[in-house]
Design a protein around this nucleic acid. Sequence first.
DNA 1: GTAAACCTGGCA
DNA 2: TGCCAGGTTTAC
Length: 276
Amino acid sequence: MPELPEVETIRRSLDPLVVGRRIEAVEIRCRQLRRPLDKDFAGQLVGRAICATGRRAKYLLFGLDNGKSWILHFGMSGRLFLRRSFPAAGAGTAGKHDHVIVSFDDGAALVFHDPRRFGLMLVDEGTTCPLFDGLGPEPFDCDAFDGEYLKRLGRTTRRSIKDVLMDQRVVAGLGNIYVNEALFACGLRPRRRLSRLTRAQCNALVESCRRVLREAVEHRGSSISDFLDGVGRRGGYQYKHHVYDRAGEPCSRCGSTIKSVVIGQRSSFYCPKCQS
DNA sequence: GTAAACCTGGCA
DNA sequence: TGCCAGGTTTAC
C-alpha cells in the first residue's frame, strides 16, 4: 500500500497527536512480520517519550528521547492508527491483524494493523539504521536526484525507466502507483530504456516524479481499497490518477484506451497516444 | 533479467 | 478456483 505520499500522510496525521507523549506499554499479538520482531522490541519502547516524527523513503520514524527511533515499514497492507482510548492489554478488543499495540499513559494507543504481514518494525538509530544503507536519494532532494543523475545512470544500464524508478536504490519512495503516474505526466512509456532518453527527457522525468508526489501528498495519498491515515481518513489522490488501474478506460487527456503491460512482475499502465 | 518467496483478502 | 494487489528479498 503505502508509497511515499501515504507514509508522509500518516506521519502528518499523527505528528501533533503523539509528539511529547510517553509510551507506557507495548502489546505484541503477532511477532511474525516480514522479519520477526526483535526479542527486545517492546523493551526498547516502554518508558520512552516520542520527540519527533520523520520519514525516510517509505519508512516512518518516531524519534525517541534516547536518540533512537522506532522505525516502521508498511509493506503492501500495513496501517498505523491512533485509538483515542484503548482498553488494557488483553482486554480482547483488538481487531484481527492488529499485530502491535503501543499504548500511552492516558489509554490512547497506536495500533499497527497488517493483514499480509509484509510490514516491518524495529528500534534503531534513525540515521545509521542498516535498512537505509542501500536507499537512493529522496525524490525531493534536488541536489542528488536530477536529470543529470538519471542521464549518468543511463550510460551503464539497459533497464527500462519503469524498472529504474521502482528501484529504491536509485530513488527512494516511489512505488507502482506513482511511477505509472509520473510516466504519464511526462509522456514516456514505461518500457522506454533509460539509456535512450535525452537529457531534456531525464529532466522532465525527474520533475514529473516530484510533481506527482507533491500533488499526492497534498491530496493526502491514494486510497485504492484500504489506505487510511493515522486518524482513519481516506486519501483523495485516487481520483486524480490518470492511468494507474485504469486499463480499458478512456484516457482523460485524449480518449484513447489505457493499456496495461507487465514489467518486472508489476502491472504498468499507459496511454498509447499520450505516451511514447 | 526473471521468478518465486513471504501473507491475506477481494473479486470474477 | 484462480488471479490479482500499494513491497522487498532471495534464488536461479
